[in-house]
């Protein structure tokens, strides 16, 4: 089993794994976008910049404070999540009564500011972040070598997505959240502090993006543009999946990552555009998205 469809098996599986990893980031980011959109009705254009901040937080914790990867996994989401809540309180909360397009423009402006500040202090060349020693090395799976860290990213991303799904579908807080998504004034009338819940939801979605950033730091080089390039693809993922369902965005994210990986093997030139082409096809066949409600 050295070749599959004329492609060397290690190459094929290697690209599939890379696709799965990209898919993990698509899933985590589109999940955060979906949760935020559900309650706040804004498309968080800042999401990519906050993902980038998560990766930078990991790098800063290591280089300025000597705190390693595992600390970063804990501190970065909390710190960036808190930063997100400040953004929500200071800026985004002023726009809830306006057209949703203003929310998009505002978060786009915030993304420009954040990205510009980081580019100013850290340049655009990218900073290295070492894989933590516990996750170095590779497993021999017989048909390919699997770097431990890459396996970890896929497992961790699946875990965080599943945890988010459980929180939203199975807990009381999640029930409030889903209720507020359907009808916020009614939930508020029942005595739930909806504005606070909105802030926390935004913080939660942002923390998820920051966590994805920490996971990404050892794989991609840490640079100010890493978020924006990713987030545009994630928007396409969101259009394909529809923002209606949590599991839907997770499945769509991973699947599209795999498709992108496969394209890299069979038609490398098209790998950058394949997701956008799929988006166009989905728009023709099912405009509301695969998991969306019309």
């Amino acid at each position: 089993m050295d070749e599959i469809f004329g492609i060397p098996a290690p190459l094929l599986f290697g690209q599939l794994l890379l696709g799965l990893i990209n898919g993990a980031f698509y899933a985590m980011l589109s999940l955060g976008l979906a949760v935020i959109f559900g309650l706040l009705n804004i498309v968080n254009m800042t999401h990519g910049a906050l993902f980038m901040m998560g990766a930078f937080a990991a790098w800063m914790l290591l280089n300025y404070l000597g705190l390693g990867y595992w600390w970063a996994m804990l501190i970065a989401p909390l710190a960036i999540g808190a930063f997100g809540m400040v953004l929500e309180k200071l800026f985004i909360s002023r726009l809830y009564k306006l057209d949703h397009l203003y929310g998009l423009l505002l978060t786009f402006g915030l993304a420009l500011v954040i990205e510009g500040v980081f580019r100013n202090y850290y340049g655009s060349s990218g900073l290295p972040y070492r894989i933590p020693s516990e996750l170095q090395g590779a497993w021999d799976l017989g048909f390919m070598f699997m770097p431990v860290y890459r396996g970890w990213v896929v497992v961790a991303a699946l875990f965080f997505c599943l945890a988010t799904w459980l929180v939203i579908e199975k807990t009381r807080l999640g029930a409030y959240l889903r209720a507020a998504t359907e009808n916020a004034p009614l939930v508020q009338a029942f005595g739930v502090n909806v504005p606070r819940m909105v802030t926390l939801t935004y913080g939660g979605g942002v923390a998820l993006a920051a966590l994805a950033g920490v996971l990404a730091a050892p794989i991609y080089s840490v640079n100010p543009q890493m978020g924006t390039n990713l987030i545009i693809v994630v928007f396409a993922v969101v259009v394909i999946g529809g923002m209606g369902s949590i599991l839907g965005s997770v499945i769509t994210g991973f699947t599209l990552g795999l498709i992108e990986g496969l394209t890299k093997v069979f038609w490398p030139e098209a790998s950058a555009t394949v997701i956008f082409v799929i988006m166009a096809i989905v728009l023709l066949a099912r405009p509301a998205g695969l998991f969306g409600r019309a």
């Binding site: 979906a34 959109f37 559900g38 309650l39 706040l40 009705n41 909360s93 809830y96 009564k97 306006l98 057209d99 949703h100 507020a180 998504t181 359907e182 009808n183 916020a184 004034p185 508020q188 909806v194 504005p195 819940m197 909105v198 923002m243 209606g244 369902s245 509301a288 969306g292 409600r293 019309a294």
Partner: peptide, 17 residues
């Protein structure tokens, strides 16, 4: 969660957008 037509009033806002 809501589709793209702005039927659901944003949380915390009593008024129509």
């Amino acid at each position: 969660m809501s589709p793209d037509t702005p039927v659901a009033t944003p949380a915390g806002a009593g008024a129509v957008p």
